[in-house]
Nucleic acid binder design. Structure first.
Lengths: 200, 200
DNA sequence: AGCCTCATGTAAGAACCTCTCACATGAGGC
DNA sequence: GCCTCATGTGAGAGGTTCTTACATGAGGCT
């Protein structure tokens, strides 16, 4: 003994989540495999099943980290701006998150993962929505807040998704994504709350 | 001979695509397997590899059908309406497509499929974009058309994606999706092209 | 101190999967 | 009537998920 790893790892769960994130980054959610994660964590192939029900649960655990990171980003948004500025900032920071951590983003919204079987992920999605509502609330008084928040989320999510998937790539140079997010959000907010005709 | 299927299937490629779509609908893109598709088409497990390079190529072929269907929908959109009406119609019909054929939609934008290895899919995405540009062109004269089309696409795609994934489910009843798509598109278009102050 | 429990690890295996190879078949051109 | 070659088959190598019975040793209890 001594030279080898002790029989009990000590923090296998987290080591596995790390390995999962690493793998997802390298190979995408589909390329991820429990066996390879176990290999990288230096344990046997069946060890992960002591900590996660199945493959999807490992991905879900990684997705949770992504949601927390996204929430943290929303926390740093500056308040005290105009509605349009704020909306644009949300859309752009959502997009930036997706582009900086495409793997995390992919896992968070991977169609393969059954959200109903992983309720903690549903909760996280609700928190995203809630966060948006809180941010928009000051600007939207007589408005259906939840719906408006969902609209902005959809807008941001759409840009981010298409950008990550590269669906827009052929039309628009790589650095225009942010402009698209920004301008779309600005147009939307201007439509929601037109600046009154008599300003200044 | 006679009672059994003839040695050569005759239209195996299409039969396999059908089986693929069926399977994707039942189990999602991740649950799809070449073997099961072969089984359903009544051929050996290796037969599909005569027609498709690999698993992803089968999914890509199914996705192509989805894109064509989506295009066909766009063709039925009524012209001669206002900008807002048209934008709303696009967003809503995009959403309806996604909700009616979630499997098709999933496969079309499944993150697992490497679009660069399946250039025909990139082409289809371009055609979606092109279709949107053509539709919006009459309304947007001095505007950056490609960007505006991308914005509307992103908006529609975002609503559709979140709806299919059920991310919004907990906040908004199932039938409100269309309203969200519609109102988001209307707000966006109003922001892009505000109705001039002195209109009757 | 010494024992015992039980969470955490392992090894082996069943049941799938993708993809490749050498070989079989028979439709269609000549 | 022959011959070619696209299309289908069977077997198999190597990968996967997840289960089951068993091993280990950390930490609580006497």
């Amino acid at each position: 003994m001594g030279q080898g790893r002790p029989y009990h790892h000590g923090d296998l769960r987290n080591a596995l989540i790390d390995a999962t994130m690493e793998l997802v980054r390298e190979r995408g959610a589909r390329g991820f495999s429990v066996s390879e994660a176990a290999r990288r964590a230096g344990v046997s192939i069946s060890a992960p099943y002591r900590h996660f029900a199945d493959r999807d649960s490992m991905l879900a655990a990684a997705a949770m980290l992504g949601f927390r990171e996204l929430e943290a980003r929303f926390d740093t948004l500056l308040a005290g701006q105009s509605f349009g500025d704020h909306a644009a900032q949300i859309a752009v920071s959502y997009l930036r998150f997706a582009l900086e951590y495409p793997a995390r983003f992919e896992v968070m919204f991977a169609p393969g993962i059954d959200r109903l079987r992983h309720p903690e992920m549903l909760g996280q999605a609700e928190r995203v929505q809630q966060r948006l509502e809180d941010t928009l609330a000051p600007y939207l008084d007589g408005e259906p807040l939840a719906e408006r928040a969902a609209q902005l989320w959809a807008l941001a999510h759409g840009v981010a998704t298409l950008a990550v998937e590269g669906a827009l790539q052929h039309f628009i140079g790589d650095q225009h994504y942010e402009r698209i997010a920004e301008n779309a959000a600005r147009a939307w907010s201007a439509g929601v709350q037109p600046t009154p005709p008599g300003g200044t």
